[in-house]
Design a protein around this nucleic acid. Structure first.
Length: 586
RNA sequence: GCCCUUGUAGUUAAAUGGAUAUAACUGCGGACUUCUAAGCCGUUAUUGCAGGUUCGAUUCCUGCCGAGGGCACCA
């Protein structure tokens, strides 16, 4: 559509002897100003030494008459042209295009035909895209920061998938390192373990996993209190690497298994299924080899360590250590091992990593080092960063134990939903299932509704909403629409195909869905979809509130039902992109 | 000190350089009693400050102020 309008204007410009101008075609914020609008007259006015309105009038005249370039938009030519009903000059010189009744009616049929493919594009057709997100650390709790990365990463994966790519979801886990040693120290010195060993540690996988998270916090805190404990944790750390202590090995295996299973339970609730799991301990030697091979070329020795002087290649970068002076690989080196592994094994066309913003500068340096070794990878690595989740009263730290776990937040959200549903006539089973779907959507939406840059100050009352601009609002609207369709199936409905003359706001939003998906991919920002769906749902609710659909007097009933079906298709696809499911009832 | 991100109604957010800055929450007021009221309708703006570029700036550039993050052996 946009391209067709652009072509028309290009033709008109050519006949005015204007070439190579960058003009834009966009949707006016106010629908009174048409469905599409272009600023071309303002852009060219100076060059043509005329005022924008006069030029705009001239262009419109060309567009409206069969002309030298042989297209007559209003004459109903082959493809385009019965779709535009009016072209008008307005404001400082905008040319506004109004789409025709016919266009909107055809669009609804189109949506019904395309169903689950409605909104997809082919930008990434034939390409392979890897998206890494969530990046859990075994032995540490799944907290709300991970919830954030997961919601964003999953949505980005789905947007990429909708754009035609073969999508691979990846998760990178810190299976070794000081945090593991601290947790193991905490476990070994817990009352429960000391008395009866593992026999004394009961509960569900997630409960035990929480308990391990507590042990980690204890271990961290104790480390600061005595040199002996610090030395003991260092010993455990070494033992984990070398697998040299039998008791440590046993606790390690047990803890890894439990925490990884607990994560898997949460991924399942959240709707994520990873295709690849990478472990830090495996990536370390791979990265180490690469760093050593490029010593003297990319990396340099300094004070006994191996470093990369980023500032020598880009003054905005800085120096980072890749191998410390004891000869051990740092996180930077592991990142290199990870990146190279990804490209060697899966060879994605694009590799996207999603993390909090604190990793931004670090990642730039590491990616620079990698692209010096493999220049062809530079344009294929993308890093998406998002703000951090914070408490109103300071930074959250799993080391201090003041974290809100993902699970407890989910539970809070779900119980709010249950409270709202207490008077609904549903089985307990259905209530439970529904409250889970709705509770998660409230959380996900609160994360995905805003652009990725800024921090989110976490406040359950304020940030998790169930009304208005919220996930449940979108679900509720879909449920209401579905229930009309369901009811209509058991009714006798005439076969009138009348189409109302006036065009609803709902229709003016519907056809824009594929454009929004494309834009969202282009920016790699899911919030454009969230914003759009809220506008779309709001336009549906207005329509719903002002129109009685399933009544005999409604002569447009078939058209309305198709419109509603087109709406529910769009909502379903759009919410899928946000990782949100729609319940049967709520 | 240098670098990155960020600053929009009382609050939380939106706005590929466009027209009268868009919503939600809160407050106040209202309608229907019908397909789910988690809904609908009405009612509030010096875009942190000062310059610049532009026909046009919340958006781009410069400086200042505030918030968060990063800058050598943590992950």
């Amino acid at each position: 559509m946009k391209k067709q309008i652009e072509k028309l204007i290009q033709e008109a410009l050519k006949s005015l002897d204007i070439n190579e101008v960058n003009f834009s075609i966009e949707h006016p914020t106010d629908f009174n100003n048409g469905d599409y609008s272009t600023n071309v007259a303002m852009v060219c006015a100076k060059q043509m030494k005329t005022n924008p309105r006069d030029l705009a009038e001239k262009i419109v005249a060309l567009l409206q008459t069969p002309s030298a370039f042989g297209i007559s938009p209003l004459a109903g030519g082959e493809n385009t042209l019965s779709i535009i009903s009016k072209i008008q000059v307005a404001g400082p010189g905008f040319i506004n295009f109004y789409l025709s009744r016919e266009f909107f009616a055809n669009n609804i049929n189109d949506i019904l035909k395309q169903k689950e493919n409605w909104g997809k594009n082919k930008i990434l057709e034939g390409k392979k895209v890897m998206v890494e997100y969530t990046d859990m650390n075994p032995f540490k709790p799944f907290h709300i920061g991970h919830l954030m990365t997961n919601a964003i990463g999953e949505s980005v994966s789905r947007i990429v998938e909708f754009s035609g790519a073969d999508t691979i979801r990846a998760n990178y886990q810190g299976d070794v390192g000081p945090h593991v040693a601290k947790a193991i120290y905490g476990i070994l010195n817990s009352k429960e373990y000391k008395e009866l060993g593992f026999k004394n540690i009961n509960g569900s996988v997630s409960q035990i996993s929480n308990w391990i998270g507590g042990c980690y916090a204890n271990g961290s805190n104790l480390m600061d209190t005595s040199e002996d404990i610090k030395r003991e944790i260092e010993r455990i750390n070494k033992a984990v690497y070398e697998k040299s202590d039998e008791e440590v090995n046993t606790v390690y295996e047990w803890g890894m298994d439990i925490t990884m299973r607990a994560f898997e339970e949460i991924y399942k609730i959240l709707g994520t299924k990873f295709d690849r799991y990478y472990m830090e301990s495996v990536m370390a030697p791979i990265g180490e080899k690469i760093v050593k091979e490029n010593l003297g070329k990319v990396f340099t020795e300094s004070d006994g360590a191996i470093v990369f002087h980023g500032e020598n290649f880009d003054k905005k970068l800085h120096t980072r250590v890749f191998m410390n002076s004891q000869g051990l690989p740092t996180y930077e080196t592991k990142e290199i091992g990870l990146t190279i592994t990804k490209f060697e094994k899966d060879n994605p066309d694009i590799s996207i990593i999603t993390t909090a913003i604190e990793q931004a500068e670090y990642m730039k340096v590491v990616q620079k080092a990698i692209s010096l070794i493999h220049p062809d990878l530079e344009s294929r690595m993308k890093h998406i960063t998002h703000g951090m989740m914070k408490f109103a009263f300071g930074k959250m730290s799993s080391r201090k134990g003041n974290v809100i776990t993902g699970q407890s937040l989910l539970n809070d959200s779900i119980s709010v939903v249950l409270e709202k549903m207490k008077d609904r006539e549903m089985t307990e089973e259905e209530k439970k299932k529904t409250s889970e779907i709705v509770g998660i959507s409230a959380l996900k939406y609160s994360i995905l509704r805003s652009s990725l840059g800024s921090d989110i100050i976490y406040d359950f009352e304020k940030s998790i909403s169930f009304e208005g601009d919220s996930g449940p609002y979108l679900q509720y609207t879909s449920v209401r629409a579905n229930s009309i369709i369901k009811k209509s199936e058991s009714m006798k409905i005439g076969d009138s195909n009348d189409i109302p003359e006036s065009i609803t706001l709902l229709e003016r939003y519907l056809y824009q869905f594929p454009e929004v998906v494309e834009h969202s991919y282009d920016k790699l920002e899911p919030h454009h979809i969230a914003t759009y769906l809220t506008e779309l749902a709001s336009s549906f609710n207005s329509f719903y509130g002002n129109t009685q659909i399933l009544v005999e007097e409604n002569k447009y009933i078939n058209y309305h039902l198709n419109l509603i079906k087109a709406f529910t298709s769009t909502m379903k696809n759009g919410l899928w992109l946000l990782g949100i499911k729609i319940p049967e009832r709520m």
